[in-house]
Structures are given as structure tokens and as C-alpha cells.
């Protein structure tokens, strides 16, 4: 069965995720309305501005449908802004900011600093073969702490950069900007699964 992967397309780098996923043989849906979540095996919440995406998720009533679809089996992967949006807790939460509270992680927004501090670095990522993965961190968050049952997949400079928990995965960097398919493959094969 071909896997059907949605990419939340409210704002941000959704096209790059769709290209990466399609190159691995799955079909993709650009999700702009909640009814488009129907029938998805997995959902990617891309990088972008977490406040802008969060506000559009509120206006277009995405929170309950995503939580419900995940509860009945839809895998979810958040990159950068997406990692913030799936976190149980946002360390420096804005007053009216809300996350999906799916994954037992605590995330700090813009943790490395402003754009001048954005960087690339090699990462040792668990479960992927073939050596280091080039991490692209853009005004990136870090994962400050994880709960029990969360497996840390990668660290950088003492902070957690990638983690998984059941049918959830979070990366604070941008695999979709590198052309390296290994983390997308990990999502499709191990997080979405059969």
C-alpha cells in the first residue's frame, strides 16, 4: 500500500517536505483545511513561523482534528516550528500560544538566538546508517527535556535536536533543506510504519 502523507501547508517550507516524501514513493497532500486530514497515514508539520502557523491552526480549527487523527493512528513529525507545535510544553510560551500537546517534550523557541546565530553542523542521528547528518538550524528551538518513553535521536552542543515517541517524531533542524533523504525515510519506515 502506498503511504499517504499530509504536509501542513498553512505557511513555511511545506513544498520541500512534499518533494522529499514523494521521492521516497509515498503520495502527498498539501493540507490547508482540517477535512484534508482524513485518510492520512502521517502528517508533517513543517518549519515556518510557529506563531503564524499556530494562529492559522486556531482560525481554521486544526487542533482537535489533528489530536483525534493521531489518537486513531496518524503518525506526526514536527520540524522546527512543527516540533514546537507538537510539544507537550513550550518553555517560553507566549500568552495566547497553544501547542497540540502530543509529544512528551519541553521545547524552547529560538533557543540558539536570532538569525545571526543560525548554523549548520554535523549530527550523529540514531537509527540512520551512512554517517553524520548535516543539520541546518534556523532560528531553531531546542528540546529542553523529554519525558519517560521518549527516545532521544540526536543531540547538538548538549541539547536535544531530535527525538521520537511512538508515532511521533520531532527534529529542531531542517532535513528538507539538505536533499538527504535519510530522516524522511526513517519517518516513513519506522514512525509511520506498515
Amino acid at each position: 500500500m502506498t503511504k499517504r502523507i499530509g504536509v501542513l501547508a498553512l505557511q513555511g517550507a511545506f513544498r520541500e517536505h512534499m518533494i522529499s516524501v514523494e521521492a521516497l514513493g509515498a503520495t502527498t497532500v498539501a493540507v490547508r483545511l482540517p477535512e484534508q486530514l482524513e485518510g492520512l497515514d502521517g502528517l508533517i508539520i513543517p518549519g515556518g513561523e510557529s506563531t503564524a502557523i499556530g494562529k492559522l491552526m486556531t482560525t481554521y480549527r486544526f487542533y482537535e482534528p489533528i489530536i483525534h487523527r493521531h489518537a486513531v493512528g496518524m503518525a506526526v513529525w514536527g520540524t522546527c516550528a512543527g516540533a514546537i507545535l507538537i510539544a507537550r510544553e513550550i518553555a517560553d510560551c507566549l500568552v495566547d500560544q497553544r501547542s497540540l500537546e502530543l509529544m512528551d517534550i519541553n521545547v524552547r523557541r529560538n533557543a540558539y538566538g536570532r538569525q545571526a546565530a543560525s548554523f549548520e553542523a554535523d549530527l550523529d542521528v540514531a537509527h540512520i546508517a551512512g554517517g553524520d547528518f548535516r543539520g541546518v538550524f534556523i532560528r531553531a528551538p531546542w528540546i529542553e527535556s523529554v519525558g519517560e518513553g521518549v527516545e532521544v535521536l540526536a543531540r547538538h552542543g548538549g541539547h536535544i535536536a531530535a527525538a521520537r515517541q511512538g508515532r511521533l517524531m520531532a527534529t529542531t533542524f531542517h532535513p528538507e533543506l539538505t536533499g538527504d533523504p535519510r530522516i524522511h525515510r526513517l519517518f516513513l519506515e519506522e514512525i509511520v510504519g506498515e
Partner: peptide, 13 residues
């Protein structure tokens, strides 16, 4: 990549 990357994150906005 880091410089163009921020613009990629602003797309659709």
C-alpha cells in the same frame, strides 16, 4: 544555506 533557509521558512506568509 542558513541565509536562504530563513527565507524558505517565511514562504506562504
Amino acid at each position: 544555506r542558513v541565509k536562504t533557509g530563513l527565507a524558505e521558512m517565511l514562504k506562504g506568509g
